[in-house]
Design a protein around this nucleic acid. Structure first.
Lengths: 224, 224
DNA sequence: AGGTAAGCCTACTGGCGAGTAGGTAAGGCG
DNA sequence: CGCCTTACCTACTCGCCAGTAGGCTTACCT
């Protein structure tokens, strides 16, 4: 026995700052997502990260700063993932479809990120709610813009700003809620869940009950 | 000067237990909704309730028990409000419409309750999430049953259980999210917000973009 | 009136966890 | 090969808050 366990209780290997910061962030997202902001302790985060507490403070500042940084990072990753999935040239329904697929794809592959973003951040009264509400607001605005743009294509009288924004809020909420539901029922692939929401918000129950469904126009994206 | 301030810093007026319990619950819902579970302190709750801390423990047990009791009470109130608004005889769209109106009506008049239910409970890892998830699950099941029932009316192949449940989850989430949005933009009456969601989920964006809207069938309910 | 029980209080403890002081090793560079 | 900077640690302090011990007071009942 060489006593060669990779987990040294004593001292951690020496690493450049940037790498350590990444590790810490990953650990923080993990712990925050499992326990929530308050229940998570800096001690546990440092342990998961494989370093000691003072390093946290040296590198990422206070607990609140750390949490806010986590939110910013994960939210940015998600927004980018969605933006990359959507092309502005497409017609409205296809844009919506692409966005939904990108969204559920991201959530499926980044559950911890999603937990931090959605469940934790929105419920803490601190400066995080602000941070998160900001991101969420941007998402809503984006969807709202898409809606307004869509109605410009057609003969609709006008889609008021507030009206579009509230519809976008409803849509974003539906996505969030369905994502949560999906995490509790992870049997189905992302594409199926996305298609379901697409049908709900594009066709509506009225059509669904009547047996009409929406299909993606081309044959280039079906399931995960 | 009679030193006759109604707020006695010393001793509270003697009251029967049932009444005090109500006061305490009201105070607890208020404080929890403003600060969240962790940030809320038993000291503050007792202060708002106008009594001293040991009374809390004597009457409502630990902090967790108190919170769970709050959730149960408020969730029950809301479920009843909605159930009272819906009649099983009506066609599906009218049932949905009545439910939405009742829901937004409740939220508008019970903001604190809503905050406790939605924002706080869902994010704490304790036994509350369970409590709340239970209520939420019942709401989702209810909507899902309505959906399945609706599709039975028609020629639809079949609405799978999981399918209906996921759609219901999306709908409930849309309602929650729109309610949150409404609290931040409280200009509009409940009926308008409810009608907007009704149009989204019944008609779908596809129809809305094309200018088709849904109207309540009779003239007996329009705005708050 | 006097007893008694229910309602109420002040004033503590005990633990947990954020944040820090001050010291040790390891890689780089002359 | 020694020196210094940077990475890293152990071992504390300190405040906050859930929960409690033990005593006072007011209403009702006989």
């Amino acid at each position: 026995m060489h006593a060669e366990q990779p987990v040294r209780p004593g001292r951690a290997k020496r690493l450049p700052r940037a790498v350590r910061e990444r590790q810490i962030m990953d650990a923080a997202v993990d712990v925050f997502s499992r326990l929530g902001f308050h229940a998570a302790s800096m001690d546990e985060i440092s342990e998961v990260a494989g370093i000691s507490k003072p390093m946290l403070y040296a590198y990422l500042g206070s607990k609140e700063e750390l949490f806010a940084t986590c939110i910013r990072r994960e939210a940015t990753r998600m927004m980018e993932a969605i933006a990359n999935g959507v092309e502005a040239e497409e017609p409205p329904d296809v844009q919506l479809w692409s966005g939904l697929r990108a969204f559920f794809g991201f959530v499926g592959e980044n559950r911890a990120s999603w937990q931090v973003l959605h469940r934790q951040a929105s419920s803490q009264g601190g400066p995080f709610a602000e941070e998160l509400a900001d991101m969420r607001g941007r998402a809503i605005s984006l969807v709202a813009a898409l809606l307004v743009h869509s109605s410009d294509f057609t003969n609709v009288p006008r889609a008021g700003d507030k009206e579009a924004e509230s519809l976008a809020a409803a849509l974003v909420g539906a996505g969030e809620s369905l994502a949560d539901w999906w995490l509790d029922n992870p049997r189905e692939p992302a594409g199926v869940v996305a298609a379901r929401l697409m049908n709900l918000v594009w066709m509506g129950f009225g059509d669904l009950v009547a047996g009409n469904v929406w299909h993606p126009p081309s044959r280039r994206a079906t399931a995960e």
